[in-house]
């Protein structure tokens, strides 16, 4: 197993192993609720809460969880926090809760969270697990805000409900519909793949020059 430093644990999830854009995990919420920045933020906040709490709990209780039932135990932990997040959102942000609808409850099956428990929290201490969860949570938030921003900008001509293009802007309705989620994700992945390819080509050229 590769040894990592605490700062690596934190940073890794943000970009290098971004859960949505690189690992392609947690795509369901990333596609479903990113039709506005506000919804993306609410979803990110709920997910952030769930992943941090779950990681801390799982890593601190890992000694008591028998290997045979670990997945059920993780799901139980995650589901508990999701229910808590659901009730909190409903009480304190009812408008957002109504917008997100069933997708809050569906955080339970966000494999990004389960993946972090199985891959990291179950094998590392509480401190490291928390760092890892925070990093992953931030990475998820960044991806969702990128998608939400793009979709809201084209779909309604606004950013965080603040009009950017003026009142005459013709909204691209498709962007706030589910199809827009797939298109946006495709666009972002295309751009990232292109940048990555350019980087590799440059490195290759430099290596060739050096030799």
């Amino acid at each position: 197993m590769r040894k990592t430093t605490p700062s690596q644990d934190l940073i890794r999830g943000i970009w290098e192993e971004n859960p949505v854009l690189i690992q392609m995990l947690g795509l369901c919420p990333a596609l479903a609720v990113t039709n506005s920045v506000k919804n993306a933020l609410a979803m990110s906040a709920a997910t952030f809460f769930v992943i941090c709490c779950s990681s801390v709990l799982v890593s601190s209780c890992k000694r008591f969880i028998p290997k045979e039932v670990r997945i059920s135990a993780y799901i139980l932990v995650i589901a508990t926090f999701v229910t808590l997040a659901d009730m909190l959102l409903q009480a304190y942000a009812p408008v957002q809760h109504k917008e997100l609808g069933a997708f809050i409850a569906l955080i339970v099956v966000n494999c990004m969270i389960l993946g972090r428990q199985e891959a990291f929290s179950a094998k590392n201490n509480v401190y490291r697990s928390l760092l890892d969860a925070i990093g992953t949570g931030i990475g998820f938030t960044i991806a969702l805000i990128m998608m939400g921003g793009f979709r809201e900008l084209l779909g309604t001509g606004a950013f965080l409900e603040y009009s950017v293009f003026g009142p005459n802007f013709e909204p691209w309705v498709i962007m706030v519909l589910p199809a827009g989620g797939f298109l946006t994700l495709g666009f972002i992945l295309l751009a990232m793949g292109y940048i990555e390819q350019r980087k590799k080509m440059k490195a290759l050229m430099a290596a060739e020059k050096a030799s």
């Binding site: 013709e170 691209w172 309705v173 498709i174 519909l177 199809a179």
Partner: peptide
């Protein structure tokens, strides 16, 4: 199809 979904009014 893209135009139909994006600009249903126009």
């Amino acid at each position: 199809a893209f135009l139909q979904a994006a600009f249903p009014v126009a």
